[in-house]
Write a protein that binds this DNA or RNA. Structure first.
Length: 454
DNA sequence: ACTCCACTGGAAATGAAGGCAG
DNA sequence: CTGCCTTCATTTCCAGTGGAGT
């Protein structure tokens, strides 16, 4: 606690000076283009049909009837979560004015590892919304987590809305193939609780997914018979819709802070990719940030061009920051090998430049963990983590051969975020990484010796 | 087609953390 | 406090895989 205060370093300008200096921004209301903002209904574009359907499905809740569960399907950034969240928020407001106690919570399957964790998160979110005392996560069976959840809904709510975002990603422990994925159990237990009438009150499930097929085929037969959602499809936005979406959020910026061609350009760039509205909005915001940093009054097309890189980088940085410490160490080791090993890497025929061979990266992992007194895990774990980071597209993993009867090896390539940026990001985040970098010459020679011996 | 070897991937085992009952 | 239980991360064991040169 006390340590946090001790970190102040000397600054050229006093804090007061800096805080009171002229504030230059192109943003009038930045909230409008923050990722998680739930916007007014009139800012929702090109999704009239979906909006109507979701509204009609939720509506019975306001009259004491049980709404259908919903499955919102479509690629990412097509407004699924936005619409679910917006309608839920509105419904809660209306409910409150009619003395119907409602609440909604949202969990994203992407960030959850297991059934237990997901249920805990839902329970925890309700506890927070309702100002209840938090109950602990570990040391308690999953089924008692469910019970706590049902108790809360029963006791404090007339109706709950649970949004399960990107649920197909919540596969849980994939060790046993015969076991259904985690989301199957979650859906089964939640929808069963309603049907069986465990509670006086009830809730509805809104599931969103990019790949409805893998979701529905992952359900086992029990779940299948209890979970029968109404499906609503969402398609990619086209450039026109993206343009309109962005125009509706134009007032995030000051009147003349946007060049005329900025919004069409952002829309075109985003439509070229995936038709992902989130990406479009991130891009617009980042372009604004860049203009601000340059202390310019207006955002230009060229800022968007620059922002493109930044946004893609941010996605990777976001992943590395949310990954466990051991995985960060592994990544750091691989990045260091890549960064300091260039000369050696270029020398060999079977090594790609800008890569790091797994074996050497692992040796460095061991070296770093020794050096910084970090707990050391097995090679197997190291390899698994790196594979995992490959599936997150943080790095690219290639399998290569070493030549005659020398076997194959894996090499890690840094595409989306350069090894240098990766090392910097991590060194920024944790002192121990920065420590390792201090002795640059030593580190360099360790890397190169190991590459030579490889 | 074969060989070598580092990696892969599944399954089972182990160990740690932490709440709960007695 | 002790023994027990659940979940989760990691380790251990083991049977493949596959790149590339012969």
């Amino acid at each position: 606690m006390v340590e946090e205060l001790g970190e102040q370093s000397e600054r050229p300008l006093s804090i007061t000076d800096q805080l009171t200096s002229e504030y230059n921004t192109v943003f009038n209301n930045k909230d409008l283009i923050e990722p998680d903002t739930i916007v007014d209904e009139d800012r929702i574009v090109g999704r009239d049909e979906q909006l109507n359907r979701v509204i009609n499905i939720i509506k019975p809740a306001l009259h004491g009837d049980q709404p259908e569960d919903m499955l919102l399907r479509g690629p990412s950034g097509t407004g699924k979560t936005l619409i679910a969240g917006t309608v839920a928020t509105k419904a809660i407001k209306i409910g409150a004015s009619r003395d119907v106690q409602m609440e909604f919570v949202e969990v994203n399957g992407k960030h959850k590892k297991s059934e237990h964790e997901a249920i805990h998160q839902i329970t925890h979110a309700f506890e927070r919304e309702l100002d209840l005392e938090y109950t602990s996560k570990t040391g308690v069976s999953t089924s008692s987590r469910y019970d706590r959840l049902f108790d809360i809904v029963d006791e404090y709510l007339d109706f709950g809305i649970v949004i399960l975002d990107e649920l197909d990603l919540l596969v849980g422990d994939s060790r046993n193939k015969d076991e259904p994925p985690a989301f199957s159990d979650i859906l089964y237990k939640l929808s069963r609780a309603k049907r069986i009438g465990k509670m006086d009150s009830s809730f509805t499930l809104i599931v969103t997914t990019n790949s409805p097929n893998s979701l529905m085929s992952g359900l086992n037969s029990r779940t299948d018979s209890t979970f029968n959602p109404t499906e609503v499809s969402f398609a990619d936005y086209n450039a026109n819709e993206l343009r309109e979406i962005l125009s509706h959020r134009r007032d995030a910026f000051y009147e003349d802070a946007l060049d005329d061609d900025v919004i069409p350009y952002v829309a075109a760039v985003a439509a070229q990719g995936e038709g992902d509205a989130r990406f479009a909005i991130d891009l617009l915001r980042e372009a604004g940030n860049i203009a601000n940093r340059r202390e310019m009054q207006t955002v230009h097309k060229s800022h968007v061009e620059e922002a493109k890189n930044q946004v893609e980088k941010n996605y990777v940085v976001d992943v590395i920051e949310n990954v466990s410490f051991q995985k960060q160490v592994s990544l750091f080791a691989a990045a260091v090998v890549n960064l300091y090993g260039q000369t050696e890497l270029g020398r060999s025929d079977y090594l790609t430049e800008m890569s790091a061979p797994a074996t050497v990266a692992h040796t460095l992992y061991n070296w770093i963990t020794d050096h910084e007194d970090i707990e050391q895990r097995s090679k197997h774990s190291f390899l698994r983590w790196m594979r995992e980071l490959d599936t997150y597209e943080v790095i690219e993993l290639n399998r290569k051969g070493r030549g005659n009867e020398m076997g194959v090896f894996a090499e890690y390539i840094f595409h989306n975020l350069s090894a240098e940026a990766m090392v910097e990001t991590l060194a920024d985040k944790d002192k121990r990484f920065a420590n390792v970098l201090e002795d640059e010459e030593l580190l360099k020679s360790v890397v190169q010796t190991n590459l030579k011996n490889f």
